[in-house]
Nucleic acid binder design. Structure first.
Ligand code: ZN
Ligand code: ZN
Ligand code: ZN
Ligand code: ZN
Lengths: 137, 137
DNA sequence: ATCGAAATGTTACACTATAACAGAACCGTC
DNA sequence: GACGGTTCTGTTATAGTGTAACATTTCGAT
């Protein structure tokens, strides 16, 4: 949280109350939170909010590296090391939905990292997004 | 398609008309197809089908390695090399949604593979699914 | 104080996915 | 060829995820 504070200060980003609260919720959660989980969290405070409020805050956090979206779960987690640009790998437990973030690493190191944590990988998804030759500028 | 035929024959899997048709649709499509795209494709034939028909066929194809689900797009593509167990990486163009499947490779080879194809990676998602220490049997 | 940009509120809707149960088709055995 | 279990399909309804569009407010700088 402190890291997020100073990061936003450095970059002149506005960590508004809603965004701050959403980040707190993600940090406090033991597992990845869907957008509507976050929304319920917000609405445990007052006043009641609508879906866009949650999505906007989450988009902000993801865009600036304070949180990650787990495509597989349609859910979000707070980043484990905000500030540094990184391409993390996530270890997602299919039983409890807990998500561990591993630091930037090359793919063959992924298995060793998982082994070290006692995590048994059953499937891995690698998705790269970018521009194909036909669409490159 | 022939590969799918023989693969199903070998494994005593039933490549029923619906499943066959869905695979044909995926193979014919230039880009990843959402479940409802597939459903529209099915309904261009008769008789009209409902969402579960598409999802069931897609689940079957994915389960047996004839297709892959692209989490990022909530969409599906036909597998480029069915039969072989593999952990492919997908190159997803954010502009045209075309998806290229790269063969099983280690992550540092991903960049080289992409470079060779003239594909400019802008973001990569690595998601591993399995069992965390707390949930392991 | 004023103005433009950024953020939020609000309504309504689109897209994605599954539960639950009924019926039909398939496949082996007797 | 009739049973009987299994797998596949049909059908209805509903749950879950995400966004478009526009009004309103807040912020920060001239
Ligand atoms: Zn991170
Ligand atoms: Zn677990
Ligand atoms: Zn494949
Ligand atoms: Zn493209």
């Amino acid at each position: 949280m402190d890291a997020a504070e100073s990061l936003c200060a450095d970059r002149r980003l506005r960590l508004t109350p809603v965004r701050r609260r959403v980040l707190e919720l993600l940090l406090a959660a033991p597992k990845a939170q869907g957008a509507y989980d976050v929304l319920s969290g917000l609405n445990r405070d007052a006043p009641p909010r609508q879906p866009p409020a949650a999505y906007r805050a989450l988009d902000f956090l993801v865009a600036h590296g304070l949180a990650h979206r787990i495509e597989r779960l349609n859910a979000y987690v707070a980043c484990a090391s905000p500030g540094s640009t990184h391409r993390p790998a996530f270890l997602i437990c299919r039983a409890c939905d807990r998500v561990a973030e591993t630091p930037d690493l090359t793919p063959d190191r992924l298995k060793r990292e998982a082994d070290a944590q006692g995590f048994r990988i059953e499937a891995t998804v690698v998705e790269a997004v970018g521009l194909c030759p036909a669409c490159a500028p």
